[in-house]
Structure formats: structure tokens, C-alpha cells
């Protein structure tokens, strides 16, 4: 196990019952501490399954993974303390206010009292929602919901952050704010694992990428290096070259 590795995945396999082809087919990769790692792939490629396994939501059929040296199989409780997850859905309670949602999530991580209140206020200010703290989430615009969804994932200051398409369907300003904040978190030492269909965003944001298709990693490394290796001009061209132009459902 590398000391500099935030996540190490070895021969990870995930097979679903009644499905012949594995969703994740014997993949291995390493994510360095302090990196922003882009896990890219078309629909059904296996990226959400991989992230779900690493977050403890699903059990791997076989293989091993460690997060900051903690075994996924044996130390999932400890892992859950140090990871943060920003799901694709706005995983918040619409009838609760932004503050009430964040207070609940903070409590679930053991945060309480003044410490929690300060963290909520600070984070809401960073994402420009301080004045909406006492407004119900159901009244928020799409961009505001994405921003509060991000805050919910980072409130407890995780060491490793998983983001599943965090900027899907948001306005340019909100997307810019989110990516800026991700850069800031990364500078503070947080390792980020990120999935997206927005290749330009991934190219600008990620320090390392892996392209996954049919459950297998078909390319990985620094974005510029991988693009160059495959004779492409940008990440989008590389992506289409590797995964084809056939529509995926």
C-alpha cells in the first residue's frame, strides 16, 4: 500500500444477480492524496457502481479497496467518518429549511452546538446561501439546490469527497462557484473523486482521470498525457474515440 495513496482499488468486481456481464469487471487503480480524480464513462459504464462500492453503499463481489489505508471490507465505519458524498440527486428534505437540513446532517456526523452552527454559516456564505438559511429547500432554484447539496457533503470536512455529477443541470454561475469551491477544498487537502459527463469541466478540474466502459478501465493518467497518448485534441474527443459514438441508454 502506497503512503501517498488516498484510494487503492485492486481487482474490484461487482456482479448483479441475473445479469451475466459484471457491472465492474476486475478494475484496479490508485488515487493519490490531494488529487482531483475524474472517473469518466458513458451511461452504464460502471462508474456509479464503483463509487457506490467505495462509499459503502454496495458490496463488491470480489476484490479489495482501501481509503486512506482503511480496508473497505473491515473498517467501513471508520471510512464513513472521513468521507463525504455529494450524490447526483438533491438528497435533502424539501420541506425543511437549508439550516434544518444541514443541522440534521451535521448531527449525523456527531457535530453539534456552536461548532455546527459556525460550520453551517461559513459554508452557506461560501456558496452564497447565507441569506437563504431559513428558507425551505423546496423554494430554491436548481442552482441553489446543487450548492446546498454540495455543502451537505462537505459540512464535516471530509478527507475524501465523492461527487456524482455535481454540476448537472445548473446555471453557469452556480457551476463556476461549485468548481471554484472544489478547487479550494482540494487545496485544503481534500482528495476529490468526481464523475461527470461534462468533459470540458473534467479537463479543467481534474488532476487525474480514468475512462471506464463496460466495467473496465480503458485509459487512465493525467488528462493532458492521456489525451496526447491517444492522439486527441481534448478530453471530449478522447472520450468519443475510446467509448464510441453509439448512443448509450
Amino acid at each position: 500500500m502506497s503512503i501517498s495513496a488516498a484510494i487503492e482499488v485492486k481487482n474490484l468486481v461487482k456482479k448483479y444477480t441475473d445479469v451475466a456481464i459484471p457491472a465492474v469487471d476486475n478494475i484496479s487503480f490508485t488515487i493519490e492524496k490531494g488529487s482531483i480524480f475524474g472517473l469518466l464513462g458513458p451511461n452504464g459504464a460502471g462508474k456509479t457502481t464503483t463509487i457506490s462500492i467505495l462509499c459503502g453503499l454496495k458490496k463488491a463481489t470480489s476484490g479489495e479497496a482501501t481509503i486512506l489505508g482503511l480496508s473497505l471490507k473491515k473498517q467501513i465505519s471508520e471510512i464513513k467518518q472521513i468521507i463525504g458524498v455529494v450524490p447526483q440527486e438533491i438528497a435533502l428534505y424539501p420541506t425543511l429549511t437549508a439550516y434544518e437540513n444541514l443541522r440534521y446532517i451535521g448531527n449525523m456526523y456527531g457535530l453539534r452546538g456552536k461548532n455546527l452552527t459556525t460550520k453551517i454559516q461559513e459554508n452557506l456564505e461560501v456558496v452564497g446561501l447565507a441569506s437563504h438559511a431559513n428558507h425551505r429547500v423546496e423554494t430554491f432554484s436548481g442552482g441553489m439546490k446543487r450548492r446546498i447539496n454540495l455543502v451537505a457533503g462537505i459540512l464535516h470536512t471530509p478527507k475524501v469527497l465523492f461527487l456524482d455529477e455535481p454540476t448537472v443541470g445548473v446555471d453557469v454561475q452556480s457551476r463556476n462557484l461549485i468548481t471554484e469551491h472544489l478547487h479550494l477544498l482540494n487545496k485544503q487537502g481534500c482528495t476529490i473523486i468526481y464523475t461527470s459527463h461534462l468533459m470540458e469541466e473534467a479537463e479543467n478540474l481534474c488532476s487525474a482521470i480514468a475512462v471506464i466502459d463496460h466495467g473496465q478501465i480503458i485509459a487512465s493518467g493525467e488528462p493532458k498525457t492521456v489525451i496526447k497518448e491517444h492522439g486527441s485534441e481534448n478530453l471530449e474527443q478522447l472520450f468519443l474515440k475510446l467509448t464510441g459514438k453509439t448512443l448509450r441508454d
Partner: peptide, 13 residues
């Protein structure tokens, strides 16, 4: 449906 259940499962405890 709203994903809160998934979020809860990723939390400690």
C-alpha cells in the same frame, strides 16, 4: 426517491 436514504447510508453509524 429523493436520495436522502442513500446519503444516510454513507454517513457514520
Amino acid at each position: 426517491d429523493e436520495g436522502s436514504y442513500t446519503r444516510i447510508l454513507t454517513m457514520p453509524g
